[in-house]
Computed example of a mutant assay.
Amino acid sequence: MTTDKIFELINHRYEQGAGTIITSNLNLTDFDSTVGARIFSRLGERTAIMRLEGVGSYREKKRERYVAWTREPLEDQGPAER
């Protein structure tokens, strides 16, 4: 999706008074440079920024489960095959 299309979407929702929830792992400076000044400005007009700290990433949790799974011995293998 191009920044023009993203702006059209954000602007349409803005004009309709519809809320938009955006999540990101970027800080504000990086978010601004990523989405562009026009989108960032439009979002900033009606924004409540909520910073979540100490919340584990679902990717980290998924990775932990995967790594644990890869370390489990296979039941049908004998000791020499492990």
Rank of each mutant, 00 (worst) to 15 (best):
D4R: 08
D4H: 09
D4Q: 13
D4M: 07
K5I: 03
L9K: 11
L9E: 13
N11M: 08
H12M: 12
H12Q: 14
H12I: 11
E15K: 15
Q16M: 09
Q16T: 13
G17F: 01
A18C: 12
G19V: 04
T20Y: 03
I21F: 04
T23S: 10
T23F: 08
S24T: 15
N25F: 05
L26N: 05
L28M: 14
T29M: 11
T29I: 12
T29Q: 14
D30L: 12
F31D: 08
F31Y: 15
S33Y: 15
T34K: 10
G36P: 02
G36R: 00
R38N: 06
I39Q: 00
F40A: 09
S41F: 13
R42W: 14
G44M: 05
E45K: 15
E45V: 00
R46M: 07
T47D: 00
A48E: 01
A48M: 13
I49N: 04
M50H: 07
M50T: 06
M50F: 11
R51W: 04
L52G: 07
G54D: 01
G54A: 04
G54S: 02
G54M: 05
V55D: 02
V55W: 00
R59P: 03
R59M: 09
E60V: 09
E60T: 11
R63G: 03
R65V: 06
V67K: 11
W69S: 12
T70K: 08
R71A: 14
R71Q: 14
R71P: 03
E72Q: 13
P73A: 06
L74M: 08
E75C: 08
G78K: 01
P79Y: 03
P79L: 09
E81I: 07
E81M: 09
E81N: 04
E81G: 02
